[in-house]
C-alpha cells in the first residue's frame, strides 16, 4: 500500500489540474462541437481521480464511470446532430434520406484511369476476421468481451457496406431493430437470472456467474456493434 499512498496526492493533483484546465477551456469556448469534446476531457479527469485510489474497488468503479460518460456522449452528440439538421432544414427544405450513409453512392466518373488501392482484406477475409473477433469476445465475456465482439460485428457490416453486396435501407432497419431487441432481452436476462439469482440461490452461484458474464457480453457486443457501424 505504500506506493499507492505515496502516489495518491500526486495523482489527485494531476486529475484536478486536468479537470480545471478543461473547465477553463469550456468557459471560453464558443463552438458547440468543441464544447462536447472538452467535456470528454473532463470525464478523463474524473477517471484519474478514481484511479488514484489504487484498490480493486477503484478498478471496478472506473468501469461505471467510463460507461456513463460514453453513454451520455453518445446521446448528446446525436441530439447535437439532430439540432444542426433541424437548423439547416429551416434554411433549406432538403430532407436527408434514411440510412444514406450506408447506401451505395454512384462513384464519380473519372476520365483518366486511376489505379485505386483496393483493400483486399475487406473483400476476402471480412467474414473470417469478424468471426474470430466474435468468438474471442465470447471467450472473454463481460464488458471486455462485449467490446471485442462489437468490433467484429462492426468490421463485418462496414466491409459489407463497402463491397456493396446489396444492403438496402429496409434491411438495415430490420437488422437494427432485431439486434436492439436482442440486446434489451439480454439485459433483462442478466438482471433477473444473473443478479437476483446470486441472492436467492447462493449455492448455485456458478450458473448465475456464467449467465451474467455471457448475457452482459452479448448485450454490450450487440449494442456497441450497432453504434459503431454508423459512419456519422
Amino acid at each position: 500500500m505504500d506506493v499507492v499512498q505515496h502516489m495518491f496526492n500526486y495523482s489527485v493533483f494531476a486529475g484536478f489540474v486536468v479537470g480545471i484546465l478543461s473547465l477553463i477551456a469550456i468557459g471560453y469556448q464558443r463552438s458547440d462541437i468543441h464544447l462536447l469534446i472538452l467535456t470528454d476531457v473532463v470525464e478523463c479527469a474524473m477517471l484519474v481521480i478514481i484511479a488514484a485510489l489504487g484498490t480493486d474497488l477503484a478498478e471496478a468503479l472506473i468501469l461505471p464511470g467510463l460507461v456513463v460518460g460514453l453513454a451520455e456522449f453518445l446521446a448528446v452528440s446525436e441530439i447535437l446532430i439532430q439540432r444542426c439538421k433541424l437548423r439547416k432544414k429551416e434554411r433549406e427544405k432538403k430532407t436527408p434520406k434514411l440510412f444514406e450513409e450506408f447506401l451505395v453512392v454512384e462513384e464519380p466518373k473519372v476520365e483518366v484511369d486511376i489505379e485505386h488501392p483496393r483493400m483486399e482484406i475487406l473483400y476476402s477475409a471480412s467474414r473470417f476476421i469478424s468471426l474470430i473477433l466474435v468468438i474471442y469476445g465470447a471467450f472473454l465475456t463481460g464488458f471486455t468481451g462485449g467490446a471485442v465482439m462489437s468490433v467484429g460485428l462492426l468490421f463485418y457490416l462496414l466491409s459489407q457496406g463497402i463491397v456493396s453486396r446489396g444492403i438496402s435501407s429496409e434491411d438495415i432497419k430490420d437488422f437494427w431493430e432485431a439486434v436492439a431487441g436482442f440486446s434489451g432481452i439480454m439485459w433483462a436476462l442478466w438482471i433477473i437470472l444473473g443478479f437476483i439469482g446470486f441472492y436467492l440461490f447462493p449455492e448455485h452461484y456458478v450458473t448465475f456467474l456464467l449467465i451474467a458474464g455471457g448475457a452482459l457480453a452479448l448485450k454490450v457486443g450487440s449494442k456497441l456493434g450497432l453504434i459503431g457501424d454508423l459512419k456519422l
Binding site: 453513454a71 446521446a75 434520406k97 436492439a180 454508423l230
Partner: peptide, 20 residues
C-alpha cells in the same frame, strides 16, 4: 451502468431512425 447505456442507446436510435 448498463441501464445508462441502454437508455442512451434508445435515445440515439430513436433520434437516428426518425430524423427524416
Amino acid at each position: 451502468e448498463s441501464l445508462t447505456l441502454l437508455v442512451s442507446f434508445m435515445i440515439f436510435s430513436w433520434v437516428y431512425l426518425h430524423r427524416d
